[in-house]
Design a binder for these strands. Structure first.
Lengths: 323, 323
DNA sequence: GCGCAGACATAACCATCGGTTATAGAAGCA
DNA sequence: TGCTTCTATAACCGATGGTTATGTCTGCGC
């Protein structure tokens, strides 16, 4: 028995159609036909009754459909645990992150962790936009530095570390690129460079879909990683919201970053699986993150008065913050 | 993920050796080497450390070894339930049996069941010796008529239906074939026709290994089904213990059945999975079995006085019982 | 020290599996 | 009738899972 077959089966059961399930699974319809046929042959049982309108579960199929999700989950959970045990045995903490991780605090967090946990190594795994949990959801990493909110956030432990305003990234030639600040409503009709559709709420968040007062979004391009994203913007395919820190971490000729008013700020958090709380290394890493937060926050609060006007003048943030 | 791989992995983990596990799994050692390698590659994790002396689990391997048995079981359980749901939906009760099932009571049981459960059909599945649970253990049947004791009996519900003495089946040319009765110790040095080694305690029971006072068993042949068994005995490869009813159900030229003293009797029982108690059809079938038991027992008790001497004269039992 | 035995790894080969594209059938619908 | 939309089938291809034969390393007995 094979979990792939079970996932195929569940997809067909859910969509009620081979053709539809094939689309969801990114395989061809004949492949699904064959695999479902094989599964039925293996079991010696008809799982679906075929009709022109689609595939409908038999009673046996319903029995399997009740069991299969738990099975698939249990398998994946076991594989996660195995990988996790391997990295723990090798004294490696796997940290997933998106784009610039926790910005300037990242170095500090990692340094604090390696101090606190001698003999351990940190493996940083950068994730594409298409995985907003940076591999945490599927157990590829033990802990992650993420942009909030992200899909699946409810089933993980999360602590907010940093908050920063969302700016807009524009083609340097864009008329708004000369402005000191941009009101979000001025961007409503602009084409946007978006994350892949599969990321759902995360994509919507970076399109600020909730803050458009119902105006539809124009998608100019879809990209899955920072370099593609910068390229798309520089090419003029569209604009995009980005954390203010992108101006420092992703400065690039042809791309301008400007403050935006009228959109909520972005949060960076540290996230870890509920079960990971038992792992001393994970706990220690989280503690290092929280210590960095207090440090950064007090720092930022102190700077806030002087920065606020500064930042709005644009341009030299990166020098100031890299001092 | 594939349960075959998990089973392979567990076999290697248990035996601590590829070569040994390959023997157990009836595959070649290179096949196992490749599969274990594939599993490790899929996980991106070393599960074993190789050494001259064999394979020893890494910490990751230990983590997987803890999880895997439950996974494999859960998968098999799900498949069992699916098949069971299919047969229930088709109003078919799958009944496994060994050799002559419940002897003359079988017909009566089935008739009573189909009366009590109108619209239902009974599918009888004869099993080879190599599966003393007649497919019950792996969910191929819903209920089974079995010879007791059998391996795995503890995890099933069992009710004894019939008890009959064990006789011996001999080549017709065997010196003891002329005797009215045989003492078991006279058979100690005879070669025996045995069930496959994989059946363990069941095979031992039919060799009466416990009643040899430590004398080793000589195995003349191993067979897996009634016809082979009869053939082996007729060919003179050995003798074998058999239920008295075999004289009626498996009478054959060249094979003689004689009563044996000094071995415990054989029991026939009805067995069903604990979960099957919830299935009305299974419950009904069991009830029919129990009703047949009381009928048969009273009948036998009444006949006992007249039969006892009769049976010891051998030979015509089959006529008498088929009247 | 030498050869042997035992255990894992590798090579070469073959059938089946899991996928593809192209196409056939059947049934609803304008 | 013809179009669309399902599922099923055919023909093909690379990867998988198995085989046998062989290599390589190591420990052991002499």
């Amino acid at each position: 028995m094979n979990t792939r077959l079970l996932r195929y089966f569940l997809a067909v059961a859910d969509t009620g159609s081979l053709t539809g399930a094939a689309r969801v699974l990114f395989v061809s319809q004949p492949a699904l036909t064959k695999q479902i046929g094989r599964l039925e042959a293996q079991l010696g049982v008809a799982l679906f009754t075929r009709s022109r309108t689609g595939m409908v579960l038999t009673e046996a199929g319903q029995a399997l459909a009740r069991r299969a999700p738990a099975l698939v989950d249990a398998c994946e959970q076991a594989l996660r645990e195995t990988k996790s045990a391997a990295s723990r045995a090798a004294r490696v903490l796997r940290v997933g992150f998106i784009a610039s991780a926790a910005n300037e605090a990242t170095q500090q967090i990692i340094a604090a962790f390696t101090d606190a946990q001698p003999g351990w190594r940190v493996d940083m795994h950068q994730a594409p936009w298409s995985d907003p949990t940076a591999g945490l959801a599927d157990g590829e990493v033990d802990v992650a530095l993420l942009r909030l909110p992200f899909p699946g956030q409810e089933s993980l432990r999360v602590e907010v570390l940093l908050t920063e305003p969302r700016w807009v990234a524009l083609p340097a030639t864009h008329p708004l690129a000369d402005r000191d600040r941009v009101a979000f409503r001025e961007l409503w009709d602009e084409p946007f460079v978006a994350a892949p559709a599969a990321t759902g709420p995360w994509r919507d968040y970076w399109l600020a879909a909730d803050e458009r007062e119902g105006r539809p979004v124009r998608i100019g391009a879809t990209t899955d990683q920072p370099d593609d994203w910068l390229q798309a913007i520089a090419n003029g395919y569209g604009v995009a919201l980005a954390p203010e820190s992108a101006a420092r971490f992703y400065a690039r000729p042809g791309v301008a970053y400007r403050p935006v008013t009228g959109v909520s700020p972005s949060h960076i958090g540290v996230a870890w699986p509920p079960a990971g709380g038992g792992d001393p290394a994970v706990r220690r890493f989280v503690r290092c993150c929280l210590r960095a937060r207090t440090a950064a926050t007090t720092g930022e609060t102190r700077e806030a008065g002087t920065v606020d006007s500064d930042e709005l003048t644009t341009g030299t943030d990166s020098e100031r913050n890299h001092r």
